[in-house]
Simulated assay, not measured.
Amino acid sequence: MVIMVGELLVAAGMLAVVTMAPGPDMAVVTRQVVSGGRGDGLRTTLGIILGLCMWGALTALGLSALLAASPTAFTVVTYAGAAYLVHLGVRSFLDSRHRDEAPADAAPPRGGNAWTVGLISNVLNPKIAVFYIGLLPTLAPSALPTQWGMALLVAAHLVLTALWLGGYVLVLDAAKHFFARPAVRRWMDRIMGSVLVVFGVRVAVNSP
């Protein structure tokens, strides 16, 4: 029992590090909060969690292992994910231009269907499959059957992701008066657009 608790604490620490590391999820959530506010940020977080649920289910069924083992399928999904991140980045740049052209009292451009944005950006990230089938088995408690251990760690990852990104959304929303300034929103659109494009290019370049 003591050994299993220790293994779970180590696993939770590793999952926390992976969850909190800056990456496409945080960039997408930031874009959505700046563009559409707290509601869009939370809905984007929900979409990301749904995407993780899908990868967890595929991992349990063994399908994500097939994807990771197929260079062609892995490359196709990787390039699709990279293209989607670049698409979101370009849209952010276009939003910044609309802010330049719009009257001062005009409503800001919306971030799109927020939960769908989160879901698609996560589903088109095959590296999550590699993470689930490569790292999670090494962290699963040895006292539990492999499937139960994996299910427990996937659930822990979902909870950590919800807490981390949900808290991040609330922090950004607390600064909404700052982000509401037209000049700040324009520059945030451009900065996050650049970040998303860079992430997209990195994903494509690092594809096997």
Rank of each mutant, 00 (worst) to 15 (best):
D105W: 13
D105S: 15
A106Y: 09
A107F: 14
A107N: 15
P109M: 14
P109S: 14
P109T: 13
P109C: 14
R110M: 14
R110V: 13
R110I: 15
G111D: 11
G111V: 12
N113T: 15
N113Q: 14
A114T: 05
A114N: 05
A114Y: 03
W115V: 11
W115E: 08
T116H: 11
V117P: 13
V117S: 13
V117I: 15
V117R: 14
V117H: 12
L119M: 07
L119S: 04
L119I: 02
S121W: 04
N122Y: 04
N122K: 05
L124T: 03
L124G: 00
L124P: 01
K127M: 11
K127P: 02
K127T: 08
I128R: 02
A129I: 08
A129W: 03
V130K: 01
V130Y: 05
F131G: 02
F131I: 00
F131E: 00
F131Q: 01
Y132L: 15
Y132M: 14
I133W: 00
I133Q: 00
I133P: 00
L135Q: 03
L135K: 01
L136M: 04
T138D: 08
T138V: 05
T138N: 08
T138L: 12
L139F: 06
A140H: 09
A140D: 07
A140L: 07
P141E: 06
P141I: 05
S142I: 08
S142M: 14
A143G: 02
A143Y: 00
P145F: 07
Q147M: 13
W148H: 09
W148N: 07
G149N: 01
G149Y: 06
M150W: 04
A151I: 03
A151E: 02
L153I: 01
V154D: 02
A155E: 02
H157F: 12
H157T: 06
V159G: 11
V159R: 08
V159Y: 09
L160I: 05
L160K: 04
L160P: 01
T161H: 11
T161A: 15
A162Q: 01
A162G: 10
A162M: 07
A162N: 03
L163M: 14
L163D: 06
W164H: 11
L165H: 11
G167D: 09
G167C: 11
Y168L: 14
V169K: 11
V169E: 06
L170T: 13
L170C: 10
V171Q: 10
L172T: 02
A174G: 12
A174P: 02
A174Q: 08
A175W: 05
A175F: 11
A175Y: 10
A175M: 12
A175D: 04
A175N: 06
K176V: 14
K176H: 12
H177R: 12
H177V: 01
H177T: 10
F178M: 03
F179C: 03
A180H: 12
A180P: 06
A180V: 01
R181T: 08
R181M: 11
R181F: 02
P182Q: 10
A183Q: 10
A183S: 09
A183M: 09
R186F: 08
R186Q: 13
R186H: 08
W187P: 00
M188S: 15
M188V: 13
M188Q: 10
M188F: 10
D189M: 05
R190G: 07
I191W: 05
I191T: 10
